Amino acid sequence: MQIFVKTATGKTITLEVEPSDTIENVKAKIQDKEGIPPDQQRLAFAGKQLEDGRTLSDYNIQKESTLHLALR
């Protein structure tokens, strides 16, 4: 499925993911596309910060959802 990640600079990244993917996997995909190390990424959805060990389906993130990326 496709999801979107909006960066602090307003850029939107499109990612191909599975509901079973962990947040860690998603951060690795962002690193592949943007070169941002996962340990510098903070992802949020619906106002909640997402934890590495959880999956997209844990957070009820569905196709075409938009996550927000902040850098630490």
Rank of each mutant, 00 (worst) to 15 (best):
I30V: 06
N60F: 15
K29Q: 09
D39M: 14
I61N: 00
T12G: 04
T14S: 10
K11R: 13
D58K: 03
T22G: 04
L71H: 06
E64D: 12
L67D: 01
T12R: 15
G35C: 04
Q2G: 06
L56S: 01
D21S: 14
T22Q: 06
Q62I: 07
L71Y: 09
P38T: 11
Q2L: 15
P38M: 13
L50W: 01
K63F: 11
L43D: 00
L69H: 02
Q31Y: 12
R72W: 15
K33V: 15
V5F: 03
L15V: 07
K48W: 14
K6V: 10
N60V: 05
L69W: 02
T55I: 09
K63S: 15
K11Q: 09
T22F: 14
I3L: 15
I23F: 03
D58H: 14
A70D: 06
P38V: 11
G53Q: 13
L50F: 02
T9G: 15
R42C: 06
A46W: 11
L50P: 01
A44N: 15
K11D: 15
G10L: 08
T22M: 15
N25R: 09
V17H: 03
A46P: 02
R54Q: 09
E64C: 05
Q31G: 09
T14P: 12
G53L: 13
T14H: 08
L15D: 00
P19Y: 15
I36E: 02
T66H: 12
A44M: 13
K48I: 12
L56H: 00
P38Q: 14
F45N: 03
L69F: 04
E34N: 11
Q41N: 02
L69N: 01
T55E: 04
L56G: 00
L67Q: 01
S65I: 04
H68V: 11
L15G: 00
G35R: 10
I36N: 03
G10H: 10
I23W: 02
T55R: 12
D39G: 12
K6F: 10
Q62C: 04
G53H: 08
Q40G: 05
T9N: 08
S65V: 07
D58A: 08
I61A: 02
N60C: 04
E18P: 04
F45L: 05
D21R: 02
E34Y: 09
D52E: 13
E34D: 06
T7S: 12
V26Q: 00
D32T: 09
Y59A: 03
I23K: 01
I23A: 03
T66Y: 08
E34K: 05
R54K: 11
P37T: 08
S20H: 14
A70I: 09
G53C: 05
A70Y: 09
A70Q: 15
V17K: 00
D52A: 11
Y59N: 03
E16K: 08
Q40Y: 09
N25F: 14
I36Y: 12
V5D: 00
D52I: 06
V5P: 00
D52R: 04
A28R: 09
A28I: 10
D32I: 12
T12H: 07
K27W: 02
D32P: 03
K6W: 12
M1S: 03
R72M: 11
I3C: 02
E16Y: 13
R42D: 10
V5M: 03
D32E: 14
L71F: 09
F4L: 07
E24D: 07
I13L: 14
L67I: 15
F45E: 02
I23M: 04
L43A: 01
E34Q: 07
D32H: 11
E64V: 03
L50D: 00
I36A: 04
T9K: 10
T7L: 14
P37A: 15
T66F: 06
L71A: 09
E51N: 12
Q41A: 04
F45K: 03
Q31F: 11
R72K: 12
G47K: 05
D58G: 04
K27F: 02
P38K: 08
K33W: 08
G53W: 11
Q62L: 13
Q2R: 08
G53M: 09
L67M: 04
I3G: 00
R54I: 09
I13A: 02
K48L: 14
I23Y: 02
K33M: 15
G53I: 11
S57W: 10
T12C: 04
R72A: 11
D32S: 15
A8Y: 07
L69M: 13
I13P: 00
A8W: 07
A46T: 06
I23T: 10
L71K: 10
L71V: 14
F4K: 07
E51V: 15
K6H: 10
Q49M: 13
R54L: 08
K6N: 12
L56R: 00
K48S: 11
A44T: 11
D32L: 14
I36Q: 03
D58N: 09
T22D: 05
M1H: 05
A70W: 13
V5A: 04
R42M: 12
I23S: 02
P38G: 10
K33A: 11
R42H: 10
P37K: 09
R42N: 11
F45S: 03
A70V: 11
I61D: 00
D39T: 07
E16A: 08
D21P: 01
S20M: 12
V26F: 02
L43P: 01
P19A: 12
E16N: 13
D32G: 08
I3K: 00
G47L: 04
Q31L: 12
A70S: 06
K27I: 02
T55Y: 08
I23C: 02
V17Y: 05
L56N: 01
I13C: 03
P37R: 06
T55A: 06
N25C: 04
G47Q: 06
E51F: 07
T14R: 15
I13N: 02
E64S: 11
K48E: 10
T9L: 12
E24S: 08
L43S: 00
I23Q: 02
E18D: 13
H68Q: 13
H68A: 06
G10I: 04
E34T: 09
R42A: 09
I13T: 04
R72C: 05
D52W: 04
E24H: 09
G47V: 02
F45M: 05
K11A: 15
F4T: 07
E34R: 05
K29A: 11
E34S: 14
L15I: 08
